[in-house]
């Protein structure tokens, strides 16, 4: 069953080729990529711009540091191991608790210290990095998700993906971990994507594996009841990432910490297209709308205010 290209175009769906050619190729300068492809650089940059990120505990650059760090980790209850240059959530290990000597992953699976060491060795060797280049490891605190949002997720921290074009948030969704996604908030791994209305922060639609759903498959919560609190503030943080990196077309991944509020998890210079399915809204009309603006608002808050008004009419689409 195929949709006719004309129908897709009429719905304003952005295709992969057009995304790469018309937006990423045109608005994202190559030399800025390392800022987002390397999580360590993103973190340092965010610090400079006063954008909160999860607390960084260790940074490892060399294999010999692995053993030593593993020993230090043995004393910690929970932590997240991330490759600095991993893409698409690859190579992220989330340890949420302990069971004696063993570490409990977000999904409840238990692993040994040995497994954690092996994972770190793999990262250092470049297994998860783009092009297989040697990589560094970031070890961060696990985000303690705000309970009102955590309730929607299963075994994992939900994150909020906002597509920011020329500094204007254009489309957003919440990604909820499922049992199938192993506690990870990655759509192609089986996480649930819930489209969020830019104007209100209310859920629009929910999809899992490109299929429309209304109830979370693991905890039976009605996803349509989801509303993001403090939505405008969150959008302003996302919008600010454009100035921070200089990228014209980017995806900002944010989490909401129980204590610290919204935090920037990572940025993506090649954000995926599935967000359109989660929203039931095509990106093209909004991108063209922003592209056609005569003057760009200098202030992130002004930009958010603008899109919240300009894209509010799209509510009708969501029904």
């Amino acid at each position: 069953m195929l949709i006719s290209p004309r129908k897709l175009a009429a719905a304003g769906i952005l295709g992969m080729n057009s995304r790469n050619h018309d937006f990423i190729g045109r608005y994202n300068q190559r030399h800025l990529y390392p800022l987002v492809d390397n999580k360590l650089k993103t973190k340092r940059l965010a610090e400079k711009y006063g954008i909160a990120t999860p607390k960084l505990r260790f940074v490892l650059h060399h294999q010999y540091e692995v053993k030593r760090t593993a020993r230090l980790l043995a004393q910690r209850e929970s932590f997240v191991v991330k490759p600095a240059k991993g893409s698409g959530g690859k190579g992220i290990l989330v340890i949420v608790g302990r069971n004696g000597d063993r570490f409990v992953k977000g999904s409840g699976v238990e692993v040994t210290l040995h497994d954690v060491e092996r994972h770190m060795s793999n990262i250092i060797a470049g297994l998860h990095s783009l092009g297989g280049n040697p990589d560094s490891i970031l070890i961060e605190d696990v985000v303690q998700c705000a309970p009102w949002l955590a309730a929607y997720s299963y075994e994992g921290v939900p994150d909020i993906r906002v597509i920011v074009f020329k500094g204007y948030p254009v489309l957003a969704m919440v990604r909820l971990a499922t049992h199938a996604s192993d506690g990870k908030a990655n759509l192609h791994q089986g996480a649930v994507g819930v489209g969020i209305d830019i104007a209100t922060g209310c859920a629009l639609k929910a999809v899992q594996q490109s299929r429309r759903i209304q109830i979370h498959p693991d905890n039976d919560i009605d996803l349509h009841a989801l509303q993001i609190q403090d939505w405008t503030h969150l959008l302003e943080i996302a919008a600010g990432c454009a100035e921070m990196t200089g990228l014209g077309y980017l995806g900002a991944d944010l989490v909401i910490d129980r204590e610290h509020g919204p935090e920037l998890l990572e940025l993506n210079a090649r954000p995926g297209l599935a967000i359109q399915i989660a929203n039931g809204i095509g990106l093209v009309p909004r991108l063209r709308h922003i592209e056609a603006l005569d003057t760009v608002h200098q202030d992130a808050a002004a930009r958010v205010a603008y899109v919240q008004k300009a894209f509010a009419a799209d509510m009708a689409l969501a029904g």
């Binding site: 069953m1 195929l2 949709i3 006719s4 290209p5 897709l8 719905a11 769906i13 295709g15 992969m16 999809v207 490109s210 299929r211 429309r212 359109q276 399915i277 039931g280 095509g282």
Partner: peptide, 8 residues
């Protein structure tokens, strides 16, 4: 993509 976006 003609297949991918069918859910929409």
């Amino acid at each position: 993509e003609l297949y991918r976006f069918r859910e929409l």
